[in-house]
Amino acid sequence: MNPSERELSYSSETRSNADDVALIRRMCDADETALGALYDQWVRSLYSLVLHLLKDPDEAEDVVEETFWQAWRKASSYEPSKGAVSTWLLTIGRRKALDRIRARRRYKEDAIGRDQVFANLPAPGLDPSEQTEGKELKAHVHAALQELPSEQREVLELGYFKGLSQTEIADVTGQPLGTVKTRMRLAMQKLREPLSMHRRVTE
């Protein structure tokens, strides 16, 4: 079975975070086959995210490789109480992608676009292989994003996709730093509501 077939078969299986935690435990015991299984399970989500951020397939592949390597090296630092394995992986990957975006900005002085990225995110539900449970959560988060006031969504977009600090966001938007902080906090609190609701239902 080649990796692409493995990827397809895994994505159609019903998995839970407990399965991923078990893989992380095996990685802590230096079982590299667990790294392979984790890769098969999450490469698509991770690649999708970092490609969306970086817009460059070569760089996205580099980040994918760096992310899984870091996961292998730092497996023992994963704490289940702080979130799902997918959260941990996507957080590592997003940080690495943002590092590259920031480096590009430093070296090439890339213009900071203020395009409405969240507005262009596709509504979930088009991928038949996706689990229903995941689809519902994504749909809620997607809806919450669309309902955010434009000024809160803009702050979130600049932080999430462009990797800007709050001070940089204040410069770009011309808003006081305190206002930026407030908007970011309010936006995040609104977005986390569907997640909290989802947890209450599933736990």
């Binding site: 698509r44 969306h52 996205a60 979130g83 957080t91």
Partner: peptide, 17 residues
């Protein structure tokens, strides 16, 4: 909040490596 950030990440259009 970190889970929320990750959930936003999962909204990225699915791309196949």
């Amino acid at each position: 909040m970190e889970e929320t950030v990750a959930a936003i990440g999962e909204l990225a259009p699915q791309a196949r490596i």
